[in-house]
Protein backbone atom coordinates (compact mmCIF):
# COMPACT_ATOMS: atom_id res chain seq x y z
CA UNK A 1 0.00 0.00 0.00
CA UNK A 2 1.54 3.37 -0.96
CA UNK A 3 1.29 6.48 1.17
CA UNK A 4 -1.52 8.09 -0.87
CA UNK A 5 -3.68 4.95 -0.87
CA UNK A 6 -3.39 4.46 2.87
CA UNK A 7 -5.58 7.39 4.02
CA UNK A 8 -8.11 6.59 1.27
CA UNK A 9 -8.39 2.96 2.34
CA UNK A 10 -8.54 3.98 6.00
CA UNK A 11 -11.40 6.42 5.40
CA UNK A 12 -13.38 3.87 3.40
CA UNK A 13 -12.92 1.25 6.15
CA UNK A 14 -14.07 3.74 8.79
CA UNK A 15 -17.03 4.86 6.71
CA UNK A 16 -18.14 1.28 6.17
CA UNK A 17 -17.91 0.60 9.90
CA UNK A 18 -19.15 3.94 11.25
CA UNK A 19 -22.03 2.23 13.01
CA UNK A 20 -19.57 0.34 15.23
CA UNK A 21 -17.95 3.59 16.32
CA UNK A 22 -21.30 5.12 17.24
CA UNK A 23 -22.64 2.06 19.05
CA UNK A 24 -19.49 1.65 21.13
CA UNK A 25 -19.30 5.37 21.96
CA UNK A 26 -23.01 5.50 22.77
CA UNK A 27 -22.73 2.53 25.12
CA UNK A 28 -19.81 3.94 27.10
CA UNK A 29 -20.65 7.67 27.04
CA UNK A 30 -23.99 9.15 27.89
CA UNK A 31 -23.03 12.78 27.40
CA UNK A 32 -23.22 13.97 23.78
CA UNK A 33 -20.03 16.06 23.93
CA UNK A 34 -18.08 13.23 25.58
CA UNK A 35 -19.37 10.87 22.92
CA UNK A 36 -18.12 13.18 20.18
CA UNK A 37 -14.69 13.29 21.84
CA UNK A 38 -14.68 9.52 22.27
CA UNK A 39 -15.47 8.89 18.59
CA UNK A 40 -12.64 11.23 17.65
CA UNK A 41 -10.24 9.51 20.04
CA UNK A 42 -11.18 6.10 18.61
CA UNK A 43 -10.59 7.30 15.03
CA UNK A 44 -7.23 8.79 16.08
CA UNK A 45 -6.13 5.50 17.62
CA UNK A 46 -7.44 3.48 14.66
CA UNK A 47 -5.38 5.65 12.33
CA UNK A 48 -2.31 5.25 14.56
CA UNK A 49 -2.74 1.47 14.47
CA UNK A 50 -3.78 1.16 10.84
CA UNK A 51 -0.27 0.41 9.66
CA UNK A 52 -0.06 -2.55 12.03
CA UNK A 53 -3.43 -3.99 10.96
CA UNK A 54 -3.14 -7.75 10.83
CA UNK A 55 -5.11 -9.02 7.82
CA UNK A 56 -5.72 -12.39 9.42
CA UNK A 57 -8.57 -10.58 11.23
CA UNK A 58 -11.60 -8.85 9.76
CA UNK A 59 -11.63 -5.05 9.78
CA UNK A 60 -14.63 -5.15 12.11
CA UNK A 61 -12.72 -7.30 14.65
CA UNK A 62 -9.80 -4.86 14.56
CA UNK A 63 -12.14 -1.87 14.94
CA UNK A 64 -14.00 -3.47 17.84
CA UNK A 65 -10.76 -4.24 19.68
CA UNK A 66 -9.46 -0.71 19.44
CA UNK A 67 -12.82 1.01 19.89
CA UNK A 68 -13.61 -1.01 23.03
CA UNK A 69 -10.10 -0.61 24.43
CA UNK A 70 -10.25 3.15 23.94
CA UNK A 71 -13.83 3.40 25.26
CA UNK A 72 -13.06 1.42 28.43
CA UNK A 73 -9.93 3.49 29.10
CA UNK A 74 -11.53 6.77 28.06
CA UNK A 75 -14.13 7.01 30.82
CA UNK A 76 -11.36 6.98 33.43
CA UNK A 77 -9.77 10.11 32.03
CA UNK A 78 -12.82 12.14 33.08
CA UNK A 79 -12.40 15.88 33.01
CA UNK A 80 -8.72 15.74 32.13
CA UNK A 81 -9.51 15.00 28.52
CA UNK A 82 -11.32 18.32 28.21
CA UNK A 83 -8.06 20.11 28.84
CA UNK A 84 -6.35 18.25 26.02
CA UNK A 85 -6.13 20.02 22.72
CA UNK A 86 -9.01 19.12 20.47
CA UNK A 87 -7.99 19.81 16.88
CA UNK A 88 -11.42 19.16 15.42
CA UNK A 89 -14.33 21.22 16.61
CA UNK A 90 -17.07 19.28 14.77
CA UNK A 91 -17.89 15.63 15.23
CA UNK A 92 -16.86 12.85 12.88
CA UNK A 93 -20.29 11.25 13.09
CA UNK A 94 -23.47 13.29 12.83
CA UNK A 95 -27.13 12.51 12.31
CA UNK A 96 -29.12 13.41 9.23
CA UNK A 97 -32.17 13.52 11.47
CA UNK A 98 -31.31 14.58 15.01
CA UNK A 99 -34.48 13.03 16.40
CA UNK A 100 -33.37 9.50 15.53
CA UNK A 101 -31.90 8.82 18.94
CA UNK A 102 -34.62 10.48 20.98
CA UNK A 103 -37.42 8.81 19.01
CA UNK A 104 -36.18 5.25 19.23
CA UNK A 105 -38.87 2.92 20.45
CA UNK A 106 -39.27 2.01 24.08
CA UNK A 107 -37.73 -1.44 23.78
CA UNK A 108 -34.55 -0.12 22.16
CA UNK A 109 -34.35 2.51 24.86
CA UNK A 110 -34.74 -0.21 27.51
CA UNK A 111 -32.06 -2.31 25.83
CA UNK A 112 -29.68 0.66 25.76
CA UNK A 113 -30.44 1.34 29.42
CA UNK A 114 -29.61 -2.26 30.21
CA UNK A 115 -26.30 -2.08 28.29
CA UNK A 116 -25.43 1.20 30.05
CA UNK A 117 -25.90 -0.45 33.45
CA UNK A 118 -23.54 -3.35 32.73
CA UNK A 119 -19.93 -3.42 33.94
CA UNK A 120 -17.33 -2.37 31.36
CA UNK A 121 -16.24 -5.84 30.21
CA UNK A 122 -19.76 -7.32 30.27
CA UNK A 123 -20.88 -4.33 28.22
CA UNK A 124 -18.29 -5.17 25.57
CA UNK A 125 -19.49 -8.79 25.43
CA UNK A 126 -23.13 -7.73 25.21
CA UNK A 127 -22.41 -5.37 22.29
CA UNK A 128 -20.58 -8.11 20.41
CA UNK A 129 -23.35 -10.60 21.14
CA UNK A 130 -25.98 -8.20 19.77
CA UNK A 131 -23.84 -7.75 16.67
CA UNK A 132 -24.15 -11.53 16.23
CA UNK A 133 -20.42 -12.11 16.42
CA UNK A 134 -19.48 -15.76 16.83
CA UNK A 135 -18.17 -16.95 20.21
CA UNK A 136 -14.80 -17.45 18.54
CA UNK A 137 -14.68 -13.86 17.34
CA UNK A 138 -15.87 -12.49 20.69
CA UNK A 139 -13.18 -14.58 22.40
CA UNK A 140 -10.55 -13.10 20.07
CA UNK A 141 -11.68 -9.53 20.71
CA UNK A 142 -12.06 -9.84 24.48
CA UNK A 143 -9.16 -12.22 25.03
CA UNK A 144 -10.92 -14.98 26.96
CA UNK A 145 -11.85 -18.55 26.07
CA UNK A 146 -14.91 -19.40 23.98
CA UNK A 147 -16.33 -21.36 26.93
CA UNK A 148 -16.00 -18.30 29.12
CA UNK A 149 -17.70 -16.19 26.44
CA UNK A 150 -20.64 -18.63 26.37
CA UNK A 151 -20.91 -18.55 30.18
CA UNK A 152 -20.80 -14.74 30.30
CA UNK A 153 -23.38 -14.36 27.53
CA UNK A 154 -25.67 -16.84 29.29
CA UNK A 155 -25.52 -14.80 32.51
CA UNK A 156 -26.03 -11.48 30.77
CA UNK A 157 -29.05 -12.85 28.89
CA UNK A 158 -30.67 -13.94 32.15
CA UNK A 159 -30.25 -10.41 33.49
CA UNK A 160 -31.60 -8.97 30.24
CA UNK A 161 -34.70 -11.15 30.36
CA UNK A 162 -35.30 -10.12 33.96
CA UNK A 163 -35.02 -6.47 32.94
CA UNK A 164 -37.59 -6.84 30.16
CA UNK A 165 -39.98 -8.95 32.22
CA UNK A 166 -39.88 -6.61 35.23
CA UNK A 167 -41.07 -3.49 33.38
Amino acid sequence: MNSTDKPKLFLSVIELNKGILFKVANSYCKDGEDRKDLVQEIVVQLWKSFERFNDQYKYSTWIYRIALNVAISFYRKEKRRKQLSNPLSDGILNFADTNVISETDENIWLLQQFIAELKELDKAIMLLYLEEKSHKEIAEIIGISETNVATKIGRIKILLKQKFSSR
Binding site: G19, F22, T104
Partner: peptide, 29 residues
Amino acid sequence: IINLWKSYDKKLEENLLFNKKNAEDITKI
Protein backbone atom coordinates in the same frame (compact mmCIF):
# COMPACT_ATOMS: atom_id res chain seq x y z
CA ILE B 1 -33.63 -8.99 21.16
CA ILE B 2 -31.33 -9.48 18.16
CA ASN B 3 -34.04 -8.21 15.80
CA LEU B 4 -34.58 -5.22 18.02
CA TRP B 5 -30.86 -4.41 17.80
CA LYS B 6 -30.94 -4.91 14.04
CA SER B 7 -33.75 -2.40 13.68
CA TYR B 8 -31.69 0.09 15.71
CA ASP B 9 -28.69 -0.68 13.52
CA LYS B 10 -30.74 -0.08 10.37
CA LYS B 11 -31.94 3.27 11.71
CA LEU B 12 -28.35 4.24 12.46
CA GLU B 13 -27.13 3.20 9.02
CA GLU B 14 -29.80 5.31 7.39
CA ASN B 15 -29.19 8.38 9.47
CA LEU B 16 -25.58 8.37 10.53
CA LEU B 17 -23.48 10.72 8.46
CA PHE B 18 -19.73 10.28 8.24
CA ASN B 19 -17.84 13.58 8.22
CA LYS B 20 -15.09 12.52 5.85
CA LYS B 21 -13.37 15.91 6.01
CA ASN B 22 -12.85 15.69 9.78
CA ALA B 23 -11.72 12.07 9.64
CA GLU B 24 -9.34 12.97 6.81
CA ASP B 25 -7.86 15.76 8.95
CA ILE B 26 -6.91 13.14 11.53
CA THR B 27 -4.82 11.32 8.93
CA LYS B 28 -2.87 14.55 8.34
CA ILE B 29 -2.17 15.72 11.88
